[in-house]
């Protein structure tokens, strides 16, 4: 479905990605883990069209994405829930959701999708006329996911959805991600919370210092010694040297 081939990206003189190749198949959950500053967010932004790759190709169902504007990528069904949620905080919950369905494709079914999203997140229905800035952190993350769902994603990309949230809420969000996948949406997930993410993943990639350094099925990586050492907290000393 998504095919990334030897992508390199840079901010000015600072190169952030080298020769990154990655594949996502239809209706799987693919997880990307790696230490801070490894380039995970850059990769997500590059796929979403907010950042142009310096070289390499990104194909979605065979057509090129890396030459297309971000809003057109959304139109094709690839939607990113960005790091830090990036809600329209001065606007109401409902307005945020409506804006999520701005593309022509999504607008036609906006009311139907809205009912569906509010079913998934009943809390948002209660607070639909409140400003997004008045929501708690967990609610804001749900709104961010809800806004993305309003755009009828075929590939949903989530960048650190659990960041800064309480464990109970994190569990809830992971359950929602799983149910989204069961509705037929393909998921590409970036997570710091590697254990939980790998438990959910069909396959995973490890990104370090801008390069893919490992890949495998979720359960393989979960039991891989190096991964356990580096990302699952079995040997904190080594983990620190990696970041």
């Amino acid at each position: 479905m998504l095919h990334i081939e030897k992508v390199a990206a840079a901010y000015g003189d600072v190169q952030a990605l080298w020769d990154v190749s990655l594949d996502v198949q239809v209706n799987e959950i693919v997880v990307l883990i790696g230490p801070n500053g490894a380039g995970k967010t850059t990769l997500m932004r590059t796929i979403a069209g907010l950042h142009r790759p310096r070289s390499g190709r990104i194909l979605f169902e065979g057509t090129a994405l890396h030459t297309v504007a971000a809003h057109q990528i959304v139109e094709r069904g690839i939607i990113l829930v960005p790091e830090g949620r990036r809600l329209f905080e001065g606007m109401t919950v409902l307005e945020n959701l409506q804006l999520g369905a701005y593309t022509r494709r999504a607008k036609q079914q906006r009311d139907k999708t809205l009912r569906h999203v509010l079913d998934i997140f009943p809390l948002l229905a209660e607070r639909r006329h409140d400003r997004a800035s008045s929501l708690s952190g967990g609610q804001q993350q749900m709104l961010a996911i809800g806004r993305a769902l309003m755009g009828l994603p075929r590939l949903l990309m989530l960048d650190e959805p659990s960041l800064g949230l309480a464990p109970l809420i994190v569990r809830h969000i992971f359950e929602i991600v799983k149910s989204i996948k069961e509705e037929g949406v393909t998921v590409l997930l970036v997570e710091q919370n590697a254990r939980r993410a790998l438990e959910l993943a069909h396959r995973a990639y490890i990104l370090e210092q801008g390069r893919i350094v490992g890949t495998g099925s979720g359960s393989d990586l979960l039991h891989n010694d190096e991964v356990r050492e580096a990302y699952l907290g079995y040997a904190p000393v080594t983990a620190r040297t990696l970041t």
């Binding site: 971000a70 139109e75 960005p82 990036r86 809600l87 905080e89 606007m91 804006l99 999520g100 701005y102």
Partner: peptide, 25 residues
């Protein structure tokens, strides 16, 4: 209006607007 909301959204965060499918240019 939707266009009006798109303007307000773009004013708040143009990247998030693009990610919602809004043609920012």
């Amino acid at each position: 209006t939707d266009s009006g909301k798109a303007i307000r959204a773009t004013a708040e965060d143009w990247e998030a607007a693009e990610l919602s499918g809004i043609n920012v240019p």
